[in-house]
Design a protein around this nucleic acid. Structure first.
Length: 280
DNA sequence: CACCAGGCAAGCC
DNA sequence: GGCTTGCATGGT
């Protein structure tokens, strides 16, 4: 990949179909926040500051090694979104959705973080999910420092498994707290092997995730798509359901319409449906 | 006040 | 198997 590196800062030519605003506002991650010209975020126990210009994508506070081992994959830079956009656009609704949400990419996030944040997402709204995840990290995550300011990593399974319901009350997650603790214990004691799940085929990985209380079909699909690199997972939430009912013939709609990358198509449909309040 | 939020588990039939 | 109901909390 063609980039320059100087002063803990990676600069590369902005990939086609790349928009930080849309990447961070489509509800896939809850750990990036608008700051100055770009976004400050925490992932993989690191703080980064990212921004884009008309022709550059810049990642600050990193190293060449981290860029190559973490961030290039995190931002899905190796994938040909131009081809995918063109492919999806054969469908008229998708063509509109892609135009509306141009530049969305599916981030490759840590699967443990996805498991917990999407358990928290059920029957909840995005601003409040963000608030709860922030409280979770601030109270139980390892401190990280950037420009003299303190941030927090996502808490480990071991840390979360060591907590009680009373400890967790402070994050205000309501009835979901018991699911969090149980999930953390299953990961800690090896009953659930998240790394193994990433190497299973999608159907088998899904069955594994469904063993966790608080993880149903929709949350499992979000974990598969955002945390396990399973781009054929197609999460159906209230917005996708409205889009299908409003803009497609419900009886005929099938995710396979978009093939092995239907999960990426889903993200465009979600952003489009939610943004325009389609079907509401 | 009622209603909703990137659903799910448990209880019914 | 499918259908219904309760669920914590905060925002509108």
């Amino acid at each position: 990949m063609n980039y320059t590196y100087q002063n803990r800062c990676i600069r590369l030519k902005k990939p086609p179909h790349f928009s930080l605003d849309h990447i961070f506002h489509c509800g896939q991650t809850f750990r990036f926040f608008k700051e100055g010209p770009g976004y400050l975020g925490i992932a993989y126990n690191r703080v980064i500051l990212v921004y884009e210009t008309s022709d550059l994508f810049v990642i600050d506070n990193t190293t060449e090694k981290d860029f190559n081992q973490i961030w290039a994959h995190y931002f899905d830079l190796e994938r040909d979104y131009a081809y995918l956009s063109q492919h999806f656009s054969q469908d008229a609704v998708m063509s509109e959705a892609i135009s509306y949400g141009h530049g969305i990419r599916i981030l490759n996030q840590d699967i443990w973080e996805c498991l917990i944040t999407f358990i928290l997402s059920q029957q909840n709204n995005i601003p409040r999910i963000t608030k709860i995840v922030s409280a979770l990290c601030e109270n139980f995550g390892q401190p990280l420092f950037y420009h003299g300011k303190m941030y927090h990593a996502f808490p480990t399974p071991e840390k979360l498994a060591s907590l009680s319901l009373e400890d967790l009350a402070i994050i205000g997650s309501g009835f979901r707290a018991k699911y969090l603790l149980e999930a953390a214990k299953m990961v800690k004691n090896g009953e659930i092997d998240l790394d193994a799940i990433k190497h299973m085929d999608t159907a088998q990985a899904r069955l594994e995730l469904l063993k966790i209380k608080g993880v149903g079909p929709k949350v499992a699909d979000c974990i598969l798509l955002f945390g396990a690199g399973k781009h054929d997972a197609f999460p159906v939430d209230v917005w996708i359901d409205r889009v299908i009912n409003t803009l497609y013939n419900k009886d005929q709609f099938c995710p396979d319409l978009f093939g092995e990358y239907c999960g990426i198509a889903q993200q465009y449909l979600f952003f489009y449906g939610r943004g325009l309040k389609i079907g509401k």
